[in-house]
Design a protein around this nucleic acid. Structure first.
Lengths: 200, 200
DNA sequence: GCAACAATGTAGTCGCCGACAACAATGATG
DNA sequence: CATCATTGTTGTCGGCGACTACATTGTTGC
């Protein structure tokens, strides 16, 4: 073959290439529309090649969800770090970052949630826990500072988590204009803090 | 044909029968798995018959979403009525009813949200507005009683709506045990009220 | 009554898909 | 450098949604 022809028999990086292309496609057209054959075409391999890396379509979607959780975790961590040390600023930044991710990658998040409760997805659950740990760590900080009632972070933070997730759902369902995103996130955090302040 | 053979050439009620079977199937296997041909088989008509009532698969899903909104509205209204006149009781009942619907018919709700932001779904939007009006009417009552800050109900109630929707998302995503449903709904309402009380 | 016509069902076909099997080329190992 | 695992390819299968042509039934105007 000519040395400018990069179509070697062995692609060399097919799994990664498929995941990258799949993520692009899911963002653009949703997970339902994703076609393994179309993916293979765009990456330049035969229709059966993906099977070597993903036993079936769902396996690819699961892998996509896993990398999604990793990316979500990174973005949340980055948001916390950029927000400095003030608790409320951190909370606001994290909520906004979560909603940002959920609306930028709505179909991916749907995938991430959908995959979590299917059997044999242990790696997925681990990845999810790692991502959500950021939020629960924040709750712990709030408790230490006395602005959030004591108790298990998973339980205390649930209302906030739910609210943030719900805002994302409403935006994705076109019940709310996406432009209101940051304002809504702030509203939600303020509401949460007013409702959560430790009462003695 | 024999008079016990109910397989007439004209089904007589095919559209309704298809929708009923589709709703059952969606509840059981999700919208993605829904197959028009399988539906036709189970209803006892040829594979092309559904096309007379729904131009394509998406049209059937839209119709399903529409009846879903009607049912949701009815259930929310029923919850309000059963709860008596006390505002907080009504709020709790409505939140619980919404979450109940969202978890019993998770796939259907997903469909309802997904369809709303596609073009040419005006009937769907109308049906959705009618369903959600129940929640906003409640907010108005709360404002009249002075326990919720004044302002447009759509904006003021949004945090509550988001929280309720988010709880449903978390339950459906197996992030929370479904048994906690009622307790969570109460938590959310209490949190919301603590955060929303009109401040003078 | 009954002829036209609209509404509603059937059969057959097309291209696409996911899954699978058999085979081919390449890379790694001893 | 022979052998074997890895990672590609081609071919095939049944199922699907969409479409067309045709068949049956219900309805409406005369």
């Amino acid at each position: 073959m000519s040395d400018t022809d990069d179509r070697r028999y062995h692609h060399g990086n097919l799994r990664t290439a498929l995941l990258a292309e799949a993520e692009r496609s899911v963002r653009e057209h949703g997970a339902e529309q994703l076609s393994l054959r179309e993916l293979a075409r765009q990456v330049g391999v035969s229709h059966a090649a993906p099977r070597r890396h993903f036993p079936d379509r769902q396996a690819l979607l699961d892998a996509l969800a896993e990398t999604g959780f990793e990316r979500l975790g990174n973005e949340l961590r980055a948001a916390v770090e950029e927000a400095g040390h003030d608790f409320q600023a951190r909370l606001r930044a994290t909520a906004a970052a979560y909603i940002r991710f959920a609306t930028d990658d709505a179909a991916l998040l749907e995938l991430m949630f959908a995959g979590k409760h299917r059997a044999g997805a242990e790696q997925l659950v681990t990845a999810a826990d790692r991502a959500f740990a950021v939020m629960f760590d924040l709750i712990v900080q709030g408790q230490a500072e006395g602005v959030i009632e004591p108790g298990e972070p998973e339980r205390v933070g649930l209302v906030l988590f739910a609210t943030v997730q719900g805002i994302a759902s409403l935006i994705n369902g076109s019940m709310v204009d996406a432009e209101l995103l940051d304002g809504l996130a702030d509203d939600a955090v303020e509401h949460f803090l007013r409702g959560s302040r430790a009462r003695v």
